[in-house]
Design a protein around this nucleic acid. Structure first.
Length: 504
RNA sequence: CGGGAUGUGGCUCAGUCUGGUAGAGCACAGCGUUCGGGACGCUGGGGUCGGAGGUUCGAAUCCUCUCAUCCCGACCA
């Protein structure tokens, strides 16, 4: 009782962060768990967000010369075997198709029949099957570089799943490129990581740290894996995207060869890079509050919801007329990569619950419009990045004229807030005891944060820390300064600091 | 795949120990009163109690089997 603040989402982040996340996803109607084990249903509000993300990323890829294509869902078992580390990495989580039809069995149940000569796996990633095509398409250095991307679903049979963050089936894009030289392939690897960084920071408003993965965290079969890591509000790290330099490993496995200008035959150098629906989970966890999702305006499924208020039919027709014309006016205002603002009109007569539905969904701007506003030629507006109670009367002209600035201001605020949080919870550490305390000290189940600490580069120290604290090396940051130091674990010489954190 | 728990209207659960043939809150529909407000009242729709078998005059409740989900451990965009 008393003056306790009621929140739309229970439990709150502080009370139980993982449960809060589940509730936010449900309450925002973005997605739900499917009756199919480990899979999710992405609902219209969540899928519209994904479509906006896809549209933006797709145009950014194309601007770098990448072209889209589509490859089979099914991959012959033998293809996977072509790269040794790749097999090891993915074999344990493959869905396998062994039959091609169903027959009536005893007691009328359908049973699989028609066993396949060679089982097919459902793609967990497509390096091998795309490599097979590349090997046929490439014969000369003139065919290079080959820059491909596919938007697809993939399946990884996960033990424990979490909606958006880790599901057995998920949506993503996978870029695959082949190059004549090592240097060009490496540059492409970094270039695409930059694209991801730009997208995630400028559109999802998520500040990230770019870096290299340690050997143990590398993509199976890659020579070098780069990544972007973001800090969630529970101070855990989430990998938001990866870009791999594959060397000639997959080219050897898939026989991707070309003749260079001197007539010599060489293996191509390849890359692959991907981001997935997991980013949605990250966006929710980084910006959401105890009232639900907060959508960054630049990717929001809709920008403004208009909430008409009326008591009778007479008021209704007057208010709706005003609301409709306002919606049309807003719909003609271009915003970022979109031709016009997306406006929702919610005229349900469900009392106050109506406004809260949109708060939970995270729409950037709400505007209540009733007879009093119309009289004043105004709207009663609220921003999702402010308390639900903060609502201001703004003249219609100022609202329409200032809406883009308001959206951009929300976008900037979200990024700023997230960056401040990340910085406030990132520490340089040189003392092993302090490091261990950082990740074990009590306090509502949320510990530590990001620790920038020295590491001797040995696998032993890395796994000792993982064993002791469930803390892993998220990346070796690109921009960490040259600095000699002592390994946080064993005390021997270290060439520089790396980013440690608990991770999703 | 090991350890623990749970399956009852759309959701959260009570009822299970001490068998007697299904309940609450929320959500949903209708009507009314309200309302710049997560409102209130009345009325109503919706469940073969995860599934199969057994014990019994009678099973949500007891027994056996089975399936599924969740939490904890080894893997992961």
């Amino acid at each position: 009782m008393g003056n306790k603040v009621t929140t739309a989402i229970k439990p709150t982040r502080e009370e139980d962060y993982p449960m809060w996340y589940q509730e936010v996803v449900k309450a925002s109607e973005m997605a739900e768990k499917s009756s199919v084990r480990g899979c999710m249903v992405i609902r219209p509000w969540g899928y519209a967000l994904w479509e906006n993300m896809v549209a933006q990323l797709d145009s950014m890829f194309k601007a770098t010369g990448v072209k889209n294509a589509y490859f089979p869902l099914f991959i012959p078992l033998s293809y996977l075997e072509r790269e040794a580390e790749h097999v090891e990495g993915f074999a344990k989580e493959c869905a396998v198709v062994t039959h091609h039809k169903l027959e009536q069995g005893e007691n009328g149940r359908l049973v699989p029949a028609g066993e396949l000569a060679e089982p097919l796996i459902v793609r967990p990633t497509s390096e091998t099957i795309i490599g097979e095509s590349m090997s046929r398409w490439i014969s000369s250095y003139r065919d290079l570089p080959l820059l491909l991307n596919q938007w697809a679903n993939v399946v990884r049979w996960e033990m424990r799943t979490r909606i958006f963050l880790r599901t057995s089936e998920f949506l993503w894009q996978e870029g695959h490129t082949a190059h004549a030289t090592e240097q060009e392939a490496r540059e492409r690897t970094y270039q695409m990581l930059e694209v991801y960084t730009k997208f995630v920071e400028e559109y999802l408003a998520m500040p990230v740290i770019r870096g290299y993965k340690s050997d143990s965290e590398r993509f199976p079969g890659a020579v070098e894996t780069t990544c972007i890591e973001a800090m969630m509000q529970d101070k855990k790290a989430l990998q938001a995207g990866t870009s791999h330099f594959l060397g000639q490993n997959f080219a050897r496995g898939s026989n991707i060869r070309f003749q260079d200008g001197d007539g010599n035959e060489q293996f191509a150098w390849t890359t692959s890079w991907g981001v997935s629906t997991r980013m949605i989970g990250g966006m929710i966890m980084i910006h959401g509050d105890d009232d639900g999702v907060i959508m960054p305006p630049r990717v929001a499924p809709a920008h403004v919801v208009l909430l008409p208020i009326f008591k009778n039919d007479e008021e209704r027709s007057m208010v709706m007329e005003y609301v409709d014309s306002l919606a049309r006016e807003l719909g003609d205002i271009p915003y970022k990569n979109r031709p016009g603002l997306v406006v929702e009109i919610d005229d349900r007569d469900t009392g106050g619950a109506r406004g809260w539905d949109w708060i939970k969904k995270g729409i950037p701007v709400r505007a209540e419009i009733g007879p009093k506003d119309i009289e004043k030629g105004a709207v009663f507006a609220a921003r999702r990045d402010e308390s639900p109670k903060v609502r201001k009367s703004i003249s219609r002209g100022d609202f329409v004229g200032g809406i883009v600035d308001m959206l951009e201001d929300i976008q900037a605020n979200l990024y700023k807030k997230a960056l401040e949080f990340q910085r406030a919870n990132t520490f340089e550490m040189d003392d092993k005891n302090k490091f261990y305390d950082f990740y074990t000290s009590s306090g509502k189940g949320i510990h530590g944060g990001f620790a920038m600490a020295h590491w001797c580069r040995s696998r032993e120290c890395e796994s000792a820390i993982k064993e002791d604290l469930s803390v892993t090396i998220r990346c070796i940051p690109f921009d960490s300064r040259e600095e000699e130091g002592k390994c946080i674990c064993c005390g021997t010489k270290s060439p520089g600091r790396v980013l440690f954190a608990k991770a999703y």
